[in-house]
Design a protein around this nucleic acid. Structure first.
Lengths: 180, 180
DNA sequence: AGAATATATGCAAAAAATTGCATAATCAAC
DNA sequence: GTTGATTATGCAATTTTTTGCATATATTCT
């Protein structure tokens, strides 16, 4: 039940449209949470019904009109209350690892291809994170303070991508050398 | 739509009851996939209806009767077919990071407590993984071959836990020194 | 003695997520 | 000039997950 809080946290940092939120989830520092636009829009409606967010309709020439959402007082209050509760354990759902469990039934070369594919993806993500980290240098002291903790989530992403790449190299070697 | 395949992969390595599967998901090398017993039992019924698994009812004195599930031919076939398809991208859902996003609204000491709590959890997990890794030494060559790829999933778990612990120390320091 | 934990399975309701479909206008590429 | 990507929002159906409840026995802890 945390998409709700993820959205509140995003809007707390920066107001924005549903579209914006999805972008932040998918690219950039939203590497720790993902969601589809359908879900986000649905949740925004619900948050609005509950009075936790409000929006300003902005007409745009050329593009569809948009709703710029922001937190209400009770939204901020709800976010604060949630922050005070202990976070529940995370859950990993990683299909690649499930596949590796059953990997002996696959073709060795196909497995290597798949590993290469993931290696490329994680390399790209790592580069993206490095760029984002570099951008932190251009912030004003005030902004840097605001984004200090969000920046730390980016740091976890960086550590994770490193772990992925180390591991993928390890697996590649093992599959090459020890699997028949 | 991968709980199905996670279960098939588990049963492919070792037949077992629903209870067993949940245990393997929660503790041990099942660190890459988690599920509740309710889900697993439900999915097992479905897999049975679809003819992908079969079971042998085992009466037990003292304990409830159990159903030892195993893969059917078509279950193995389905697993093999799935292994050949590219794995979809994983999704992280990590409430602690969402919380960190909104962390500036919380109390500094409460945040440090929360971090300490997670540090302890990850330390425990890391120790658990180390033990499991040590157990690999006692396998016969044949078993080692069978468990080679599952072992590699354990390796990712080990890399991840290291990343977590490094990061948690980093965050702790930042929160202590730079947050007011 | 009573409480908690482990074994073992399951139903039912509610919430959340996925998948498919739908619209609508720009802009860039081919 | 049409195809595809980007911006922007949403409904509906289905699938998946979570949460709460339920049962039953053995063992271990306090």
């Amino acid at each position: 039940m945390s998409l709700k809080h993820a959205i509140l946290a995003m809007l707390d940092l920066e107001k924005g449209t549903g579209y914006d939120i999805v972008k932040r989830f998918n690219r950039s520092i939203g590497h720790f949470w993902s969601s589809s636009h359908q879900q986000v829009y649905k949740e925004l409606h619900k948050l609005h019904d509950d009075g936790l967010v409000e929006y300003e309709a902005v007409e745009q020439a050329g593009k569809p009109d948009k709703k710029v959402y922001f937190l209400t007082d009770s939204g901020l209050k709800a976010l604060k209350a949630w922050v005070r509760q202990p976070a529940r354990a995370f859950k990993i759902k990683e299909p690649l690892l499930v596949k590796l469990f059953a990997g002996r039934h696959g073709d060795k070369d196909e497995l290597l291809d798949e590993l290469a594919r993931h290696e490329k993806l994680h390399q790209e993500t790592a580069e993206q994170y490095a760029e984002l980290e570099a951008q932190m240098d251009h912030l004003t002291p005030r902004q840097r303070k605001k984004y200090l903790l969000p920046y730390m989530t980016l740091r976890l992403g960086i550590h994770f991508e490193k772990a992925w790449l180390t591991w993928l190299a390890e697996v590649r070697k093992v599959v090459k050398d020890e699997l028949d």
